[in-house]
Simulated scan of single mutants.
Amino acid sequence: MLVEAFAVGFSCVLVKFGAWWGAMGWDRPMIASTITGVLLGHPVEGITIGAALELVYLGAQSMGGVLPQDYGIGGVFGCAFAILASTRPSVAVALSIPFSMLGTLIYDLFKFWATSLVTKFQKHLEEHRIGAFKRLWYSQAIVYLAMWFLLGFISILVGTTAIKTLVNTIPTVIMHSLTVAAGMLPALGMALLMISLWDKKLAPYFFIGFGLVAFFKGTLIEVAFIGAAVAVLAIIGQLTTTKNLKTQAEHVTDEEEDFFND
């Protein structure tokens, strides 16, 4: 279990590193679960669980530094417990929710500490102590990554056996309820996303995608392929309209210049 705990801790480090430095999107559940699955030696399971968790957290976005749910940590632990406890993806979805909330709490505590260092950073700059400024910055970065590693390492080292025992002792009725609830969570994620994206101009595209799946039994890959083609057509149409407007504006300008020149 020591190796697995180290793998999950390193997964947390990679996910947070890719999210903070460069905003590469490694904290999305799809990527986080895939990284975890690869490090645990189960890449297929990691991708499968990541796809399920991505739907759950589809509408969760960080706005102005405020993180409603740490979906990266939720993706790591949801995948890890599903693989290590040999449980179903629906249970992994249910287990990822509390860890996503725990990740938010830990991140808020870190921000509180990091904010308290602002005066020290400012003092180092005013005194032109660039070396001290860099050391403080690297210390902050090390603490940031170390706390996520410890969260993953300790949680798996101490908690996997307890989680496995808990899953095995859950009655069938409750397990079925968790499965039903997990099936509803993707719909909640879609609803949260639609709240921010819904517009009367975009509504037809939503119903086209719905119709392709509901009436023509299209798969997500087929719908995504058709959606990509429609998006290309929309972009081409927008570029053509912009080009025509620009040409018309230039034509009007040329006519005005000819009028004044005459």
Rank of each mutant, 00 (worst) to 15 (best):
93 V>W: 12
78 G>Y: 12
180 V>S: 07
59 G>C: 06
9 G>D: 05
254 D>R: 03
6 F>V: 15
191 A>G: 05
98 P>Q: 01
262 D>S: 09
226 I>D: 01
177 S>D: 10
73 I>S: 09
92 A>Q: 01
98 P>F: 02
204 P>V: 09
216 F>Q: 11
143 V>T: 13
173 V>K: 02
143 V>M: 11
29 P>N: 03
195 I>L: 08
235 I>P: 04
184 M>Y: 11
149 F>S: 04
57 Y>V: 03
103 G>Y: 12
43 P>G: 07
205 Y>A: 15
5 A>H: 02
206 F>D: 12
60 A>Q: 14
57 Y>G: 00
9 G>C: 02
199 D>S: 15
224 A>F: 15
135 R>W: 10
121 F>A: 05
68 P>A: 05
220 L>P: 07
126 E>T: 09
86 S>H: 15
69 Q>N: 14
22 G>D: 02
254 D>V: 00
14 L>W: 03
133 F>A: 12
240 T>H: 13
100 S>E: 06
99 F>A: 13
115 T>I: 09
64 G>E: 10
87 T>F: 12
250 E>P: 00
12 C>D: 01
68 P>E: 10
3 V>K: 14
90 S>A: 15
78 G>C: 09
217 K>D: 14
238 Q>W: 04
113 W>Y: 12
30 M>S: 06
197 L>I: 12
80 A>Y: 01
199 D>A: 12
219 T>F: 03
172 T>W: 12
173 V>C: 08
22 G>T: 02
100 S>Y: 03
215 F>C: 08
131 G>T: 14
14 L>M: 13
2 L>R: 04
47 I>V: 05
190 M>D: 11
155 S>G: 12
71 Y>A: 15
208 I>S: 05
96 S>R: 07
55 L>I: 00
40 L>G: 09
10 F>P: 12
107 Y>V: 11
125 L>N: 09
221 I>L: 15
88 R>W: 11
133 F>K: 10
102 L>R: 01
165 T>N: 14
231 A>H: 11
162 A>V: 12
208 I>N: 04
211 G>D: 01
205 Y>P: 08
131 G>C: 08
34 T>A: 02
205 Y>H: 13
124 H>R: 06
24 M>I: 01
210 F>H: 10
207 F>E: 01
202 L>R: 15
258 D>N: 01
9 G>H: 05
50 G>N: 01
176 H>P: 10
125 L>S: 10
224 A>E: 08
96 S>H: 00
38 V>R: 06
17 F>M: 09
75 G>F: 00
237 G>D: 00
152 G>L: 00
172 T>S: 15
135 R>F: 10
200 K>F: 11
